[in-house]
Computed example of a mutant assay.
Amino acid sequence: MRQTLEYTLCRTHQGTPLITLDSPLGNGQENKPDTLRALAYALLDVATQAEQQEPSRKHYRSRKRVVQF
């Protein structure tokens, strides 16, 4: 069964990447090792997207996204 990871990409006031995970992760969920590996790869991809965002004049410009893993 595929799971959904909802997240928001933005930047801090200092201009560094910031990611808000909008999905409940953990909290008693039971996952098999292959599901946890898929989650880890999805999180690595989210981190890469956050770092590749172009800084804007406003430090806080959020972008909501969803990925299935």
Rank of each mutant, 00 (worst) to 15 (best):
Q53W: 05
V67K: 13
S23P: 04
T16D: 15
Y7V: 04
Q52G: 02
E51D: 13
L5D: 03
L18Y: 03
K64W: 06
R2T: 15
T4H: 04
R37C: 14
H13T: 03
H13I: 00
L39V: 02
I19R: 04
G28D: 02
R37G: 07
Q29V: 08
Y60W: 11
Y60V: 01
M1H: 11
K58P: 04
T16A: 15
Q53G: 12
R11A: 00
R11M: 00
Y60L: 06
H59Y: 06
L21A: 09
T16I: 11
L9A: 10
A42S: 03
R63F: 03
Q52H: 10
Y60I: 07
R2M: 15
G26E: 08
R37M: 14
S62M: 01
R61H: 13
R11Q: 01
Y60P: 00
C10T: 09
Q49N: 09
S56N: 09
S56L: 07
E30S: 07
H13A: 01
R2H: 15
Y41N: 12
L5Q: 08
L9T: 03
T4I: 02
E54S: 12
T35C: 07
S23A: 07
E30H: 05
L9I: 01
V66L: 10
Q3Y: 06
L5T: 02
R57A: 12
R11W: 00
T48D: 07
L43R: 10
P33C: 14
E54R: 12
Q14Y: 05
Q14R: 05
E54P: 03
T12R: 00
L44S: 14
T35V: 01
P24Q: 10
P17H: 03
D45T: 01
A38M: 04
P55V: 06
K32Y: 08
L39S: 05
R2C: 14
D45G: 07
S23H: 00
Q3R: 13
E54L: 07
R57I: 05
D34A: 06
T4Q: 09
V46I: 14
N31V: 08
R37H: 14
L9F: 01
L25V: 13
T12S: 00
P33D: 13
D45V: 00
V66M: 11
H13L: 01
T16W: 05
V46E: 15
S23L: 04
Q68W: 09
K58Y: 09
R57E: 05
T48N: 14
L21S: 10
F69R: 07
L9W: 04
E54C: 08
C10A: 13
H59A: 05
L5W: 06
D45Q: 11
L5K: 06
S62R: 00
L43S: 12
S23D: 08
L5S: 09
L44Q: 14
I19K: 04
A38D: 09
V67D: 15
R37F: 13
L39M: 10
G15S: 00
S62L: 02
T35W: 04
A47E: 15
R63G: 03
T35P: 00
E6Q: 08
